[in-house]
Design a binder for these strands. Structure first.
Lengths: 337, 337
DNA sequence: TTGAAAGCGCTACCAG
DNA sequence: CTGGTAGCGCTTTCAA
């Protein structure tokens, strides 16, 4: 592949001049520009971003770490980051970190090796301390979907506790009295916070959720099916079901209907995330909107500003987001006694 | 950030030695290894992949170009590539190319600038000639979802024509006689090939599809809704509907049921792609399985071999994939006269 | 087993 | 306006 030297030689100018026309630098004669441009085309010259990054001490890649591309939620997150990368004329370097501390660490490290100076990290397994250290090492690193008090200004997150409360309030307003819950089996904050918020609000209204009516599963469609079967197998009655996320909720509805229950007539179901799909499931899913793409954009912008030491005007408050209730068809007034 | 020189200085050895221990090179004394390793940790040294790529003339990034991360189909594609990247200890460099020649060209160019030497490209807008040229410039570039005869050994693709035929045969076997079709409005090969295969097979059985019963829309859920409304508005009767992809099919079913039609009792619907979601829609969608993730893995592996000049044993034949009919609940025997 | 040194392709500074 | 050149961080001969 042709290098800047080749172009310089063929065009009969110095590499400095070629560099100038490539970077549209000042003070280049039109004649030189034309000559060099022609040669660049002839040679199909493409500047080497690695060499450039090396000398400039800054790369044009924006990094993002997510557990898995296949999950629409994370795809939206990546998509949000991609949008601002495109705007900044940067490329997306993507690493998936599964849900293991080791792979998360490794994924982040790969980004650092590439000297990617702005990065948006979704980490659930790394400890607060490790993340704080990382945050000191990489100025342009911001966390998404995680809140760590000491580095609050580097965290873009959603208030899951409040989300649980909102769900409870909605169901309570619909006169439900017997609740069931499907949560994620993963030991991360989100599920427990959502559940906790849900229970707190229930308790405040003098209701509670029976321990056998809480099931934990994989946070996907199949997980929703399996946990729902268990719930049904328990034999206990419930008219309202709060589910960890939309995928599980749709799996749950599927199973419920396969077993002769009508949603929402017999059982109301509420999800979490407001994935596009939830608008098209039947019945359309009532859920809590998680503005992940917007949050990802915010995180990417923040990271970019941090990396470039641009004074940011954001107040920490705005980094916290509150989910919004989206009423659709899967919840309705309780008709059971 | 600490460089190799820093480590060398602090450890009291030459940079050559540090390089050797970093790369687990041969002939280094245990003493040196220990000393250097300790200093690396103390200084939190992380090798600079850019510098390394520069001198080695090869990068550790694997590139992928897709139109959009938000579409589950492309997310799966990216995911397949990611899997082999991980296996090869490489990073994923992702560029989205919308569906415009200019952005596709730009996306690919960004990868070349990064000297990404293995890349999987999903391009619908670039001309055959341009792609062939690219393919000559970058040895490790392979195309996915596109077939160009001159570079057949660099194309991993699906036989869309055959897919259309399979769908037609299925519907014909179910005794359907009145067909409608929803296609994508984008002027790319896939939709027209699928439609053509479908019509060919119908014609062979002495049926045809009425021109007013073919609609074109955005290949997503909403597009499915809108086109279905138009179909319904035409007033023409049909009992079988062949839809461009699963997302549209689900949108179509949603609209059909909203208008009082039962699927499959009144109308059979068949999709294309076999996205995970199709297993969970209600009714579960009959569709054609598009093994995109597997194809992406194959493409990535092929690209990697090509980039490393490893003699590949694959025969061209195997780069072509045939969709597989997946019978579920959205199609059934025709009951109309 | 180790070190010195020559670049990899590029930018930016300094002269001219 | 243009050219020469140092040096970004690293790998890899070649000598020692």
């Amino acid at each position: 592949m042709a290098t800047i030297k080749d172009v310089a030689r063929v065009a009969g100018v110095s590499v400095a001049s070629v560099s100038r026309v490539v970077n549209k630098g000042p003070k280049v004669s039109k004649k030189t520009i034309d000559k060099v441009t022609k040669v660049m085309n002839d040679l199909a010259y493409t500047p080497n971003a690695n060499a450039r990054a090396l000398v400039m001490q800054k790369s044009t890649t924006m990094g993002v770490v997510i557990p898995d591309l296949t999950d629409p939620f994370f795809a939206s997150l990546a998509n949000g980051v991609e949008q601002v990368a495109r705007l900044q004329n940067m490329q997306l370097l993507l690493s998936t970190g599964q849900v293991s501390a080791e792979t998360e660490r490794q994924a982040i490290n790969l980004l650092i090796e590439q000297r990617c100076d702005v990065m948006v990290i979704h980490s659930k397994k790394l400890s607060d301390d490790e993340l704080i250290a990382l945050t000191n090492k990489v100025p342009g690193l911001v966390l998404i979907d995680r809140y760590i008090k000491q580095i609050a200004h580097r965290c873009v997150w959603l208030d899951n506790l409040e989300g649980g409360k909102i769900a409870a309030r909605h169901l309570l307003a619909l006169k439900h009295q017997n609740f069931a819950c499907i949560s994620s089996k993963y030991k991360i904050d989100d599920p427990s916070l959502r559940l906790q918020g849900f229970e707190n609000e229930l308790n405040a209204a003098d209701f509670e959720i029976e321990p056998t009516l809480i099931e934990y599963g994989e946070p996907n469609l199949q997980g929703g099916e399996i946990t729902t079967q268990k719930l049904l197998a328990s034999g206990k009655k419930f008219s309202a079901l709060f589910v960890y996320n939309d995928a599980m909720a749709i799996g749950a509805i599927s199973t419920l209907e396969d077993n002769g229950y009508r949603v929402p007539t017999d059982i109301s179901v509420i999800g979490f995330d407001d994935v596009l799909l939830s608008r098209y499931s039947r019945p359309k899913l009532t859920t809590l909107n998680y503005p992940i793409e917007e949050m990802a954009r915010q995180a990417a912008n923040l990271a970019h500003q941090l990396a470039n030491k641009t004074p940011t005007i954001n107040e920490d408050e705005h980094l916290k987001h509150i989910p919004r209730l989206v009423k659709r068809e899967s919840t309705s007034l309780n008709t059971q006694k």
